[in-house]
Amino acid sequence: MNETPWLAGVDEAGRGPLAGPVVAAVVVLDPCSRIAGLTDSKKLSAKRRETLALEIRTRALAWGIGRASVEEIDHLNILQATFLAMQRAVERLPKWPVRVLVDGNQCPALDCEAEAVVGGDMTVPEISAASILAKTARDAEMQDLHQLYPQYGFDRHMGYPTAQHMKALTTFGPADCHRRSFAPVRRLLLAASG
């Protein structure tokens, strides 16, 4: 019996926040074990995401998580750091997929066929699953950062530039986990040094 060629979906979480890593996930679903309810992670409640993430990790043929640190984001830029996180996720698979579908309009360099799918997190189950794993993995990291830096409220906004986060940044200044290359953080650092 011939083995089914692996089709993988890739997505990321955390391109827009002012703090924390960017996290990517890759998922190879089992065509014989469908998972109901897969969609863009942003359309799901936190509780539903966690339930689906457990199901994905249990029932998928394979999955992997990759990340790029705040330092890598500041050094490379957010797009290249996102691609790096995606590459690291795919490298965690036990074997290379024949094809990778990536949410968005650009693909990282991979040693296999890759195709960008705009809106793929809503239409391609493998990408939806990757979206859910990336989001839950990154949210867990932001909860850890909240324990270290409770004054910023990372447990509520996950590092995104909400009014609460901007107020805390202005009051306390940036922490080590803030992305210095992002304009709101850079402006605060320039104001503090000038």
Rank of each mutant, 00 (worst) to 15 (best):
A109D: 13
L110S: 04
D111F: 05
D111Y: 03
C112T: 14
C112R: 00
E113A: 15
E113W: 07
A114M: 01
E115C: 09
E115M: 10
E115R: 13
E115T: 13
A116K: 02
A116M: 03
A116L: 02
V117A: 01
V117R: 05
V118K: 12
V118D: 05
G119M: 07
G119W: 01
G119V: 11
G120I: 04
M122P: 06
T123Q: 14
V124I: 15
V124R: 01
V124Q: 04
V124K: 01
P125I: 09
P125A: 11
P125V: 07
E126V: 00
E126P: 10
E126M: 02
I127A: 05
I127W: 02
A129L: 05
A129M: 06
A129E: 09
A130C: 06
S131I: 05
I132V: 15
I132S: 05
L133P: 03
L133F: 06
L133H: 03
A134P: 11
A134K: 08
K135H: 06
K135S: 03
T136N: 10
T136M: 07
T136A: 11
A137T: 14
A137G: 10
A137L: 00
A137Y: 03
A137N: 07
R138I: 11
R138T: 06
D139N: 13
D139Q: 03
E141G: 08
E141H: 13
E141S: 09
E141W: 12
M142K: 12
Q143H: 14
Q143P: 00
Q143W: 11
Q143Y: 13
L145W: 15
H146P: 00
Q147W: 09
Q147L: 15
Q147R: 15
Q147F: 06
L148V: 08
L148P: 01
Y149G: 11
P150G: 03
P150L: 10
Q151C: 12
Q151N: 09
Y152W: 12
Y152A: 06
Y152Q: 03
Y152L: 06
Y152K: 02
G153H: 08
F154Q: 10
F154E: 11
D155Q: 14
D155C: 12
D155P: 04
D155Y: 05
R156W: 01
R156L: 14
R156P: 04
H157L: 11
H157I: 04
H157K: 08
M158P: 00
G159V: 11
Y160T: 12
Y160S: 12
Y160H: 12
Y160D: 12
P161C: 08
P161I: 07
